[in-house]
Design a binder for these strands. Structure first.
Lengths: 250, 250
DNA sequence: CGCTTAGTTGAGTTCGTTCAACGACTGTGG
DNA sequence: CCACAGTCGTTGAACGAACTCAACTAAGCG
């Protein structure tokens, strides 16, 4: 479980960023792109299982995930864990900590990661010289807020089966939007992660996933889940989908 | 249940704003204050029970709550309701809708409200001409995100009693921070609101609140709850508190 | 005075939990 | 190469927390 610290060597230039070409991300002006490029201090890689940021830390960095899957979580004193949201390519990581100060949640890698590293103290400059990008940061924060609203609705008012269906439809949709569908979508997590996301015990999570499996909607194997019928999952959950158009990529 | 639309008449000037003097709100520069003042298009009042913003709407306005209590919520098709968060004086209302476009939740008044009204399309100007205020908007979005993280932890991993204790300690703390403590703190909500916040049935909510009542931690009467021992409530919930210093007021 | 809303309480049921045991798979060291 | 431990997933059985149903009180309001 090693974590490679910010390297000066840059492998992916912002102009050539493989994410930027995706249809979900809005076009940036040359000026914006140049600033983001200069904002980028380097790259960081991390193995699966690594903790990227921990609760209580005052990180000097802000990240954008380039590739891989990660998740944010909080814990109670006695060890109970709640996964708050998942992080996919194109997502900002550590904004809360960068803006307010101390982190109040931790971030862990589900798969090997590559992250773009930004200096927290250059965020002021971003707001000062590129108001459009400042607005974009707010936009991304509002998007995260929306996802959390959806999760709250799920935890508070959906049954176990509906919750599981929602989560998998949600992750499927996000994966597809960033092009992680080589024919099929495979989500790299364990049933323990699902349990800690849905607020269920691991035993009942297993039985619930089995029901979805028996209906032919998902296929669980090893440490990952393949979504076979996202439309039916969304229908079971009564989930409308993200209703989201294009978004910025910083 | 009438809702008084934006009036040109301004009763409270930003410079004289009764909230601005509170110790939780950071000082603004004269320039910032002048801009916020010009940003303010008017005021709006609403009676308890009024819906301020509804899911699916494209509101041309953004608000800051001046006085009163409100809440954000979402509903499933069959009527199940989840309260997402509460809105207290000094909070921005409708930011998600203003930034992304369509509202994906509704907002309802718990008590009579007074709101400052801003024009959504002047938000660009705010980011362009006052980067510090732009940063502040992001700061407030990150703060909301934090509260939602806490709520998720609660719904996912706390017992009914812990959840209730957390909610009341949380609301108490927020009320105190904006000076709503005339000796004691009284929260204007019904047990149905508590149930829809905690993800519990109304019957079980009643029995849970009764336990807190029997311990002498709260006093329920009429359509409101008085918090008697916020420290013990926080201890039961295992809640650290908001860990929050000063914040901006827009 | 009847009507509505909010809160209360008991009884029985259901959903999700804990406890326990087991199989499949992976990596590791002798 | 095998023995072993560790992780992950699976299933049954018993238990408990939270649910639904139902009935009732108290307060507010026309």
């Amino acid at each position: 479980m090693s974590l490679v610290l910010p390297s000066s060597g840059r492998r992916v230039s912002c102009e050539q960023c493989p994410l930027r070409g995706l249809p979900v991300f809005r076009d940036f002006s040359p000026g914006e792109l140049a600033f983001v490029s200069s904002f980028k201090a380097g790259e960081m890689t991390a193995e699966a299982g690594t903790t990227i940021l921990s609760e209580g830390a005052h990180s000097a960095h802000l990240f954008t995930l380039l590739s891989g899957w990660a998740f944010r979580f909080k814990m109670l004193d006695d060890g109970r864990r709640q996964i708050l949201n998942y992080i996919l390519p194109g997502d900002l990581v550590g904004l809360q900590g960068s803006v307010i100060g101390e982190m109040e949640h931790s971030v862990e890698a589900l798969s090997p990661l590559v992250l773009c590293v930004f200096q927290r103290d250059q965020l002021d400059e971003l707001f000062r010289n590129h108001p459009g990008l400042g607005f974009d940061v707010t936009w991304l924060a509002a998007r995260e807020e929306r996802m959390l609203d959806d999760h709250l609705l799920s935890l508070g008012r959906r049954t176990a089966l509906e919750r599981a269906a929602y989560l998998l439809a949600f992750l499927h949709e996000r994966a597809v939007s960033v092009g992680l569908n080589g024919g099929r979508v495979t989500i790299p997590l364990t049933q323990q992660h699902v349990a800690d996301t849905l607020g269920l015990s691991i035993v009942h999570t297993n039985k619930t996933l089995r029901k979805l499996s028996n209906k032919g909607l998902i296929h669980w194997q090893g440490r990952s889940c393949e979504v076979l019928d996202a439309v039916e999952l969304a229908r079971i959950a009564g989930w409308e989908g993200p209703g989201e158009s294009m978004r910025p990529l910083i």
